[in-house]
């Protein structure tokens, strides 16, 4: 199967065309955030504060990378398990977040919000962290530097290999696999 080329940021119309099982090569801008950063982002929204990045049309990659060695853009950078972000994800999707990248299951509430708002959940290969790091061409911490590996980074990626796990109609590749 041919890979679908996607360029970030992305529109709702493009999102609605993706189907669970599609193979994707994604390029452009992504933001990183995992447990601690998600708590801070949602906290900031609750308090009516401005976020460190615009969410409309954007994607968040659930990753806490290794430190870069001299000469590297970033250290190993595979996905972390996504369900821990489930309590926060619906709020961010409602702010315009279109793409989430991670590994593992999502909650019913997250999937329902994805269907309503038009968002997708893409899987990166967990543990293939050295290989994924090679697709990251630029990385810069833009917020919450004190969180170390959990800080929010702005990444520029090129042909990041992904698979559409849950599409904006709620179809789920994992559940298909288990049947």
């Amino acid at each position: 199967m041919e890979k679908i080329k996607l360029e970030m940021p992305i529109t709702e119309a493009e999102i609605r065309e993706l189907n669970a099982g599609d193979k994707i090569a994604l390029s452009g801008v992504l933001y990183t955030a995992r447990d601690a950063a998600h708590a801070r982002l949602v906290d900031a929204l609750e308090r009516g504060e401005e976020l460190p990045m615009e969410l409309e049309g954007q994607g968040i990659y659930y990753v806490g990378p290794c430190p870069a060695k001299p000469g590297q853009v970033i250290g190993s950078a595979g996905p972390t398990t996504s369900y821990r972000m489930d309590p926060f994800a619906p709020r961010l999707i409602k702010e315009g977040l279109r793409v989430m990248i991670g590994k593992g299951e999502r909650s019913t509430e997250v999937i329902e919000t994805m269907k309503e708002e038009g968002a997708v959940y893409l899987g990166a290969i967990g543990g293939a962290a050295a290989l994924i790091a090679k697709c990251i061409k630029q990385a810069e911490v833009i917020a919450y530097d004190d969180l170390g590996t959990e800080a929010v980074r702005r990444l520029e990626v090129e042909d990041l290999p992904l698979i559409c796990v849950i599409d904006s109609n709620g179809n789920n590749l994992y559940h298909r696999a288990g049947e």
Partner: peptide, 27 residues
């Protein structure tokens, strides 16, 4: 898809060993 994942894991292990970088970011 299972074969592709396994091939990717083998390639990743090779890169990590060659470049002395972590196989997985969760060290």
């Amino acid at each position: 898809v299972a074969r592709e994942v396994l091939e990717t894991l083998l390639e990743n292990a090779e890169i990590a060993k060659e470049e002395k970088m972590p196989i997985c970011q969760d060290t």
